[in-house]
Simulated scan of single mutants.
Amino acid sequence: MHGKVSDMFSGPIKLFHLSDIHFGLEDRRALSWVEACITREKPHAVAITGDLTMRARHREFDAANAWISALDVPVTVEVGNHDLPYFNLIERFVTPYKRFARIKRLVEAQLDLPGLAIVPLKTTTRGQWQRFPWSNGWVTERALDETLDAIDSHPPGTRILIAAHHPLTERRERDGKLLTINGTRTMEVLAGRGVAAVLSGHIHDPFDLTVDTAAGPLRMIGAGTLSRRIRSTPPSFNEIVIDGARIHVTARNLEHVATPDMQIRQVPENALPPRESGEPVAPVGAVPPVDPPVH
């Protein structure tokens, strides 16, 4: 699915990169602030990299769909692991995107801007035989092929941003635990295609890392959360400015914490607050004493 953005502007492109809103445990103050920023600043596009809801309940989707529908800018939405039905396995496997109905045209939508395209990459799956629960990432061959076909359809010189829910790190650094299946190969193939950066969410802390692959470096940009389920940073979103070959990332937040203090240096396993030695923590260190309960 393609979304054509007006080509009547010139100069730098400003994107807002949101993730992990988790309606059901959303931070209303943070959402009101982001909505005001979008209304006032009119970014050229908004990329939301998944986990709109907490438990994929109908009432959570109703709130998410209404909030996103009210945004008066081009939007693309990725599907997060929390957005697939938890309690209705028939729906999860047969019609997993049914509850996105009101914003269906935005789900995994490609956005085309002057000289730049945001291309989706599906990292969530309905089930995984390799492990349970099915919360971590998996880039299937079909998903990767669809993304590569979309990349190859653009004219030479088009800058490509990939939008995905899960970071593509395949193994956790400290113990080699499996995170995103097929992530290493995916990063290598995307680097070989000259992808400018991969935008993702899932872990609730922002980051801006460059990974060395066999095909060259690949930039990985993660957004924080806009929920009350924080990890080690206050609620935030990324402002991304693309100016020619330069991509500048600002982790904007209501606490006015500087971007370097918001960004973690490694990709952790999940969105739980760090409780064990060796788990990455952002310099700001805003670790909650308890994780909000999910009912």
Results as ranks from 00 to 15, higher is better:
88 N>R: 07
80 G>D: 05
117 A>F: 09
281 V>K: 03
70 A>H: 13
68 I>Y: 10
257 V>A: 05
74 P>L: 10
233 T>F: 01
16 F>L: 10
4 K>A: 13
140 T>N: 05
279 E>C: 10
196 A>W: 01
252 R>C: 10
45 A>R: 04
289 P>Y: 04
154 H>V: 01
61 F>V: 12
168 L>I: 09
176 G>F: 09
263 Q>D: 00
115 G>E: 04
216 G>E: 08
199 L>T: 03
293 P>A: 11
199 L>Y: 02
210 T>K: 09
69 S>Q: 11
184 T>N: 13
63 A>H: 03
245 A>C: 04
173 E>Y: 10
213 T>F: 01
187 M>R: 15
188 E>L: 01
151 I>K: 04
246 R>H: 11
36 A>D: 14
27 D>C: 12
110 Q>G: 12
43 P>Q: 03
155 P>K: 05
100 F>Q: 04
118 I>G: 08
148 L>I: 15
263 Q>K: 13
140 T>D: 11
202 H>T: 01
86 Y>W: 14
141 E>S: 13
193 R>L: 08
65 N>I: 08
75 V>M: 08
37 C>Y: 04
277 S>D: 14
266 Q>C: 06
280 P>S: 05
172 R>W: 13
201 G>D: 02
46 V>L: 15
202 H>D: 15
225 T>E: 00
140 T>Y: 12
158 T>R: 08
283 P>T: 06
204 H>D: 08
153 S>P: 00
32 S>D: 15
162 I>H: 02
235 P>D: 06
113 L>I: 03
10 S>Q: 01
165 H>L: 15
210 T>R: 10
36 A>G: 07
272 L>F: 13
124 T>E: 14
209 L>C: 02
14 K>G: 03
249 V>E: 01
109 A>R: 15
246 R>L: 11
285 G>N: 11
88 N>A: 07
96 P>Q: 00
184 T>S: 15
218 L>D: 09
49 T>Y: 02
75 V>L: 13
256 H>R: 11
258 A>I: 06
104 K>S: 07
122 K>L: 15
78 E>C: 14
89 L>I: 04
271 A>K: 03
59 R>E: 15
82 H>L: 02
52 L>G: 12
8 M>K: 02
109 A>I: 00
223 A>I: 02
147 T>R: 06
23 F>W: 15
229 R>F: 08
15 L>A: 06
282 A>Q: 00
